[in-house]
């Protein structure tokens, strides 16, 4: 056990799985970097934010492949390699670039198994960073996990901490289905204790980061940390919260969500993706359908507005869910009184 950043935890998961299984390969734009440059330096970058640094040195360029800037071809190649015997981990850099290769994910990789009558296995992982908070503006800040969650055949993982990232990435690599693994780019330097040895966190099993009586908060990725901060503040005001980190949006741990809502009767969902047809609407529908009678207040969603992500800091700060907004939503749901019947 030692303190590791989100970045190091991901790097370690990749390294350990590549050691364990020689069919695991890595590909993406500048996952090493330096090919064809005048200095002859290899591993110049190790990914744009240094997440894959050092892997070229250990595994060589037959397993760490720099690609041209051609997402459709290398993401497709990763899918093709996955269905024919390799376990590729392809890095898409910013998830926004999925616009350039969605066909290979949506119409190809996601559908092989079903379309081919159960004959195919596609052990593909696509890693990408997502999220606002970097002033990266509209084309580099989206939180597109609902898009992938919408597509049957894909599994979708959103780690909320370094510990979670390592265990979930190891599961993703060992999984026989295509997995989209989404890393919030604001979290790479966050640190916590992470075991040195490999461990796998199963998909579809939510993590309760705290348990309380009054309100259930479901949050994803970086929002889990914000939800816990809000819960700390609320605790001091006598409001006790359960915070659920579903870990994976597909599969989704419906049972845990429904059980917690049954206990608390109140639900707040924190989701940093665009508010229409996002995870918050999905979970709200689940609870409305399956747990209507346990609700003591309307479900509240803490989500961004239905706009692209703005550039300027003032606007981007307003755009994102915040601890304040989560606290306000919980307070509002607590204040709700069921109308008297006349």
């Amino acid at each position: 056990m030692s303190k590791k950043s989100f970045r190091q935890a991901i790097n370690e998961a990749l390294r350990q799985e590549m050691r364990r299984d020689p069919t695991v390969i890595l590909m993406g734009e500048d996952v090493a970097g330096g090919r064809g440059g005048s200095a002859g330096t290899q591993d110049a970058w190790g990914g744009v934010l240094g997440v894959t640094k050092g892997l070229l040195e250990e595994f060589g360029d037959t397993r760490v492949l720099d690609t041209p800037i051609t997402e459709a071809s290398y993401i497709g190649a990763a899918a093709g390699a996955a269905v024919t015997g390799l376990r590729p981990v392809a890095e898409l850099m910013f998830v926004d670039f999925v616009g350039c290769c969605l066909d290979q994910i949506m119409n190809q990789a996601a559908k092989f198994r079903y379309m081919f009558g159960g004959k195919a296995r596609t052990p593909l992982v696509i890693r990408a960073m997502f999220g606002a908070g970097f002033n990266a503006a509209a084309q580099h800040s989206q939180a597109l996990y609902p898009l992938f969650t919408h597509i049957p055949g894909l599994k979708v993982v959103i780690p909320s901490s370094p510990y979670e990232a390592k265990g979930l990435l190891i599961s993703a690599i060992r999984d026989d289905d295509p997995v989209i693994f989404l890393e919030n780019k604001v979290m790479y330097d966050e640190e916590e204790d992470v075991p040195d040895e490999p461990y796998a966190i199963p998909f579809g099993e939510a993590n309760l980061t705290r348990e309380g009586r009054d309100v259930t908060i479901v949050a994803f990725g970086r929002m889990v940390g914000l939800a816990n901060q809000a819960a700390d503040r609320l605790e001091k005001k006598g409001i006790s919260c359960t915070v659920i980190d579903p870990r994976t949006t597909s599969p989704l741990d419906r049972d845990t969500i429904l059980e917690c809502v049954a206990d608390t009767g109140r639900l707040v969902i924190v989701d940093e993706s665009s508010p229409r047809c996002n995870m918050a609407t999905d979970i709200a529908a689940l609870v409305a359908e399956e747990a209507f009678d346990t609700l003591r207040a309307p479900i509240r969603r803490v989500v961004p507005p239905h706009t692209p992500v703005p550039f300027a800091t003032v606007l981007e700060t307003l755009y994102l869910p915040s601890v304040d907004r989560i606290e306000a939503a919980v307070t509002a749901t607590m204040a709700h009184r069921v109308a008297e019947k006349v």
Binding site: I69, F97, N135, A137, A138, Q139, A312
Partner: peptide, 26 residues
């Protein structure tokens, strides 16, 4: 020029035939 919504990577000015910088390669 884009009211602070775009930043360096999205400067555009259609009035002078400038369709925009672009965050997406290609």
């Amino acid at each position: 020029v884009c009211r602070g919504k775009g930043g360096s990577m999205h400067i555009a000015d259609l009035a002078c035939g400038m369709l925009g910088a672009n965050g997406i390669v290609g």
